[in-house]
Computed example of a mutant assay.
Amino acid sequence: MNMRKSPAAGMEDDIGSRNPMRRTKEEAAETRRQILRSAEDEFLARGYENAKLEDIATAVGVTRGAVHWHFKNKQGLLYALRDEAKRPFMELAERLAEEDTGQPLDALGDVICGVFTRLSTDPRQRGMLQVMFRLDATPVGGPSADPFRQALLDAMTKVLEIAEQRQGLPAPWTAKAASAAMRGIIEGLLLEWSRGELEFELLPHGQAVIRTILTSWKI
């Protein structure tokens, strides 16, 4: 029987290839990752405003329609790049839940300071953060219902709950209060650094702030 192909299926066929066979979910996921990496390169090299979807698609070897299929538009790409920032925290929470040893607070500090190091070693990242702030596509300034901010908060809460269970937290801190405070501190540090108006750098000043606070929560 000749079944009519849906528009969605037609778009997926076009993603990254002219092969008439529908791509597998794994291949589509890999194409998505490649598009996202290309977008990051374009944004950092040319700036968000000057980056073009055509160039992002060409660098991966897919059509512009494929980019629209996965991310809709440039702002969608920026949202996706922002959302990747929560992955290290979620992975840390999962890893600590499976391990019986280690210091959760030190591990959380390592993740946060690692993010600060990555941002600091590429001066273009400051401009990217500024764009994200303007588009309300970052944790800073976003609404309380922002799924990214909530996911980040949930991941840090899980880490701090493990710390609370294993070593305890000093009064008056609870895991939920500490995670909310830490999220606010991270957001504030990133905002000030992105502005570049003060004699403040994520490395070493931001890292020192994070380590000092986490050390104060150890019992």
Rank of each mutant, 00 (worst) to 15 (best):
N2E: 01
M3T: 15
A8M: 07
R18F: 14
N19Y: 12
T24A: 13
E26Y: 05
A29E: 15
A29Y: 12
R32P: 11
R32I: 06
L36F: 03
R37P: 00
A39D: 02
D41N: 15
L44C: 15
Y48T: 07
K52F: 13
G61D: 03
R64M: 07
A66R: 03
V67N: 02
F71A: 13
F71V: 15
K72M: 09
Q75N: 11
G76S: 10
G76H: 07
Y79W: 11
Y79G: 07
A80V: 04
L81M: 03
D83F: 03
A85K: 00
A85I: 04
M90E: 06
R95G: 05
A97Q: 04
A97C: 04
G102V: 01
G102C: 00
Q103S: 01
L105K: 09
D106P: 00
D106A: 06
G109S: 12
I112D: 00
C113D: 11
T117N: 15
T121D: 14
D122L: 08
R124V: 05
L129T: 13
F133P: 04
D136C: 01
A137Y: 10
T138D: 09
V140F: 01
P147Q: 08
R149E: 14
A151R: 11
D154K: 10
M156T: 12
V159S: 01
V159L: 00
V159G: 01
E161Q: 11
I162N: 03
A163Q: 02
A163S: 06
Q165S: 11
Q165A: 13
Q167L: 03
K176A: 08
M182P: 08
R183A: 06
I185V: 10
I185C: 15
I185Y: 03
L191R: 07
E192H: 00
E192L: 11
W193N: 04
R195E: 15
G196K: 06
L198A: 14
F200W: 14
F200D: 03
E201T: 14
L203T: 00
P204T: 08
P204C: 14
Q207M: 03
V209R: 02
T212M: 02
T212G: 07
L214T: 05
K218A: 09
K218E: 13
K218F: 09
I219A: 03
I219S: 06
I219P: 07
